[in-house]
């Protein structure tokens, strides 16, 4: 589903954010990316979303060569990916319901069908009662969960999550991870950037550890540190 083949990303100031990254995540697999801040986690997610293009190497996501993607293809590519952003990226002048409905609106869903899906997604993150609220009225953790609902509402084949549990208490973190595991079980490919070491350890999934733009460890489940 996601295949990095010696991908490097160099910015204009010659700073190399990622160097020669190679790994592959297949359908129905869930993996964590870990590493200190500035290690290149966000850049890696940006590459997958085609926000940035790799400087060298080949990155294929869901059959699309992201390095060669055309402007027109980018939107369709992003619709295949549900993304949970670290800073939520919600629309503050729309209700929770409308925020979650956005990906469906883009795809042109009928209002009733969209309504059912939005409520199902909000139910999964435990926010069904807040559908009429506005994001500003919600706590950081609730906003994060709205972002998660929006990421999964269109049933994407890839889910990217950047620190999805950063604002959540352990109970809610566990709930969110359970939602992710449900998607994994139906064949969705998940990549979760997190530096929550205890969470990673407890869940025991494959973990990619980045250090200064290099992939320094690709720990498979079952092996311990």
């Amino acid at each position: 589903m996601i295949k990095f083949d010696s991908v490097s990303k160099r910015y204009l100031d010659r700073h190399e954010a990622l160097s020669a990254i190679s790994f592959e995540i297949s359908k129905g697999e869930m993996a964590f990316i870990s590493g200190h801040s500035g290690a290149g986690k966000s850049t890696l997610l940006k590459l997958i979303l085609a926000i940035e293009k790799p400087s060298t190497g080949q990155l294929v996501v869901n059959g699309v060569n992201v390095g060669r993607i055309s402007r027109r293809q980018i939107a369709a590519h992003r619709r295949q990916i549900g993304t949970v952003f670290q800073d939520h990226q919600l629309l503050y002048d729309r209700s929770v319901f409308d925020n979650v409905a956005l990906p469906l609106e883009i795809c042109g869903y009928h209002r009733q069908e969209a309504g059912r899906r939005v409520r199902a997604a909000l139910d999964k993150v435990g926010l069904l009662s807040k559908e009429r609220s506005y994001p500003e009225a919600l706590s950081g953790g609730e906003q994060q969960r709205v972002g998660i609902a929006r990421a999964v509402v269109n049933r994407p084949c890839i889910i990217l999550a950047d620190e999805p549990t950063g604002n959540l208490d352990p109970d809610l973190s566990a709930e969110v991870m359970r939602v992710f595991e449900q998607f994994k079980s139906v064949g969705v490919c998940l990549l979760v950037a997190s530096h929550d070491a205890s969470l990673i350890q407890r869940l025991n999934y494959r973990t990619l550890i980045l250090h200064e733009g290099r992939l320094c460890e690709d720990r498979m489940p079952g092996t311990s540190r």
Partner: peptide, 15 residues
Amino acid sequence: DEIRVIKLVGGTDIF
């Protein structure tokens, strides 16, 4: 900001 978010979740320019 709104347009940026819509682009992130896959909205086309014409949308």
